[in-house]
Nucleic acid binder design. Structure first.
Lengths: 204, 204
DNA sequence: TTAGTATTTAAACAAATGTTTTAATCATTT
DNA sequence: AAATGATTAAAACATTTGTTTAAATACTAA
């Protein structure tokens, strides 16, 4: 039960939700403590303050990214399309394992904390390089359209794959009765659209 | 010169930049006043408080949206592809006229202010409906792949067109020396990728 | 110049922020 | 049972927040 968990665990879980929803500056330590049914002092006691709690949350959120990146080492022998598919697959996995992940990314983008540079340098730029590498290879191999702007094409892929998770659950407000909709289905279709879009056309 | 502008104008311009960068809660009235070279009390004096200033900034930012939406009335007789192209064109226009526009949208998404519902209901949902309408028509006419999930395809388009502007100027940090890169060029390529991606394939 | 209005200024306000302190309570070990 | 350490609790702290006040200054019209 929730009441049996120790204060440290309760704080970490509650903070994950609240920080994701409102960003680091959008939540107060009193809100965090109250939501976790814990005294305010527990935050400093277990995490050395609000920033320490936020850092603990971030580290937990980024764990699957590190796992995914370690697999890219062996991607050299894969075709460009297979590499992009690998990215798409891992995007789906990460979003399933950490539904709030994108929220943290974009909270940091619009309101950077001291951890932003750390995270960014460490993970995001590596992902971006993986995509641009795959695109470059794909063009060289004649798989993708030769006139693609690599950087823009990479951002297009990141955009079409991640935007959905940024505006969720917001999008549900607009979309009329899409009962079957789920994240996995989205990523599959979005990736298919993108891949068909960058393919070298037959008359080229 | 900047010193000649009246306090009201200076505040509005400075607030536009700062609110876009840090969000509503990320900036204090003292920061706003100092950046505008204006006394703190001027904010309440001219805008009836911080929220009033923010509202004035938002209204100014959304002006081009209203203009674009008014043109969609006559879009019924256009083909589905032409309608989507119309969306893509207006996206480029809006981002050129209001480079910070997307920042405000996504600040509101991650940290909604009381104005969020107003904005959202009024503009964003209308845009979304326009896109889904075009997609539905395109499928019916045989222009687009029949197995598209309309809502997901609409979000894919919004994602591929707008993501670039969210992560800018962040992306510049990663991208190695792309000298020719500009927003207009991005939108053209992103839209082309998307359009090729949703087209009905020849063997269908 | 004078009178009246508009604007600017510095100071003060209550409320909220993150952190720390000190004591009380709990659990475990001797 | 007593003692030790871990955890919880309430209160106080110095800052910072947005707003308001009241006086000083600048501007405009008669």
């Amino acid at each position: 039960m929730d009441l049996e968990k120790d204060s440290q665990t309760k704080l970490l879980e509650t903070a994950t939700t609240l920080f994701a929803q409102k960003g680091f500056n959008g939540v107060s330590v009193r809100q965090l403590a109250e939501a976790a049914n814990v005294n305010i002092a527990a935050i400093s006691y277990y995490f050395r303050g609000k920033e320490g709690l936020y850092q603990a949350v971030l580290e937990e959120q980024f764990a699957p990214i590190a796992a995914a990146l370690s697999q890219t080492k062996t991607a050299n022998k894969l075709s460009a399309t297979e590499q992009l598919s690998m990215y798409a697959k891992h995007i789906a996995i990460i979003h399933r394992q950490r539904p709030l992940f994108t929220r943290f990314i974009f909270n940091e983008v619009s309101n950077p904390t001291p951890f932003f540079d750390l995270i960014f340098k460490k993970y995001i730029s590596k992902i971006f390089q993986f995509i641009t590498g795959a695109l470059t290879k794909g063009i060289a191999d004649g798989d993708f359209a030769a006139d693609l702007n690599i950087n823009h094409a990479a951002l297009s892929l990141a955009g079409i794959m991640n935007f959905y998770f940024i505006v969720n659950p917001l999008a549900k407000t607009i979309m009329p009765l899409d009962n079957t909709s789920d994240a996995e289905e989205y990523t599959v279709q979005a990736y298919r659209i993108y891949l068909d879009g960058i393919r070298r056309k037959k008359d080229e």
